[in-house]
Amino acid sequence: MSKQSAIKVKNLVKNFGKDDNLVRVIENASFEIQKGEVVALIAPSGAGKTTLLMMIGCVIEPTSGEIWLGENMVYKDKWLAKDTRKIRREKIGFIFQAHYLVPFLNVLENITLLPQANKVSEEDALKKAMELLKYFEIDDKAYNMSSQLSGGQNQRVAIARALANNPEIILADEPTAALDGERAVSVIKMLKKIALEQNVAIITVTHDERILPYCDRIMKIQNRGIIFHDLNDEDIL
């Protein structure tokens, strides 16, 4: 395994149901994503984008295959770690279509929640959170509730939250779907910058053609398998 490999998937299979009701979603998917890379995951609705994302995120158990996160194999026909939640907590950051900030916590608390659950001291968690807020130029909103922020500001807080636990991987599920063109581009640029500066691998599920030029690679689910597109290909979506 390459030292720079962040995600490696080998012969991954995911089926739902049994016998006559068997639905094959992913078949023998194999790919590798390097640290610092931003990869767009595209496919028609219902093709299994979210399922693939959730398998990589150790949320949904695959049917068979192998998943490596960094140097650690986390799945080989079964979860190899007893607590997959710990893997998520320590290695993965999630960004969603909507910001999904905890509504009863302020911006700072939303960002420090996960590090504190990871036993990071309150002082260190706050320091890191303030750094992230400054990085995203919303440090003046640290004590605001999410209801007091605009959509773009909330999405930036959500990205800051995803970075708070210093993840190796960020899994984003249509992070720009709810944003207008300018903000969508601004978010993907931000993700690109983070990937490079913090050496994080980012997979972003998207239908948004506007953000594709900012991705390093485009991964498409086609006929239940994975194919990679060149950025210059036409009609990717």
């Binding site: 939640r85 710990k86 659950a117």
Partner: peptide
């Protein structure tokens, strides 16, 4: 929804 997100992010059930 918030609880699902917390669990997805990896917050332990105990919390």
């Amino acid at each position: 929804k918030v609880i699902s997100i917390m669990k997805l992010m990896g917050l332990p059930n105990s919390l």
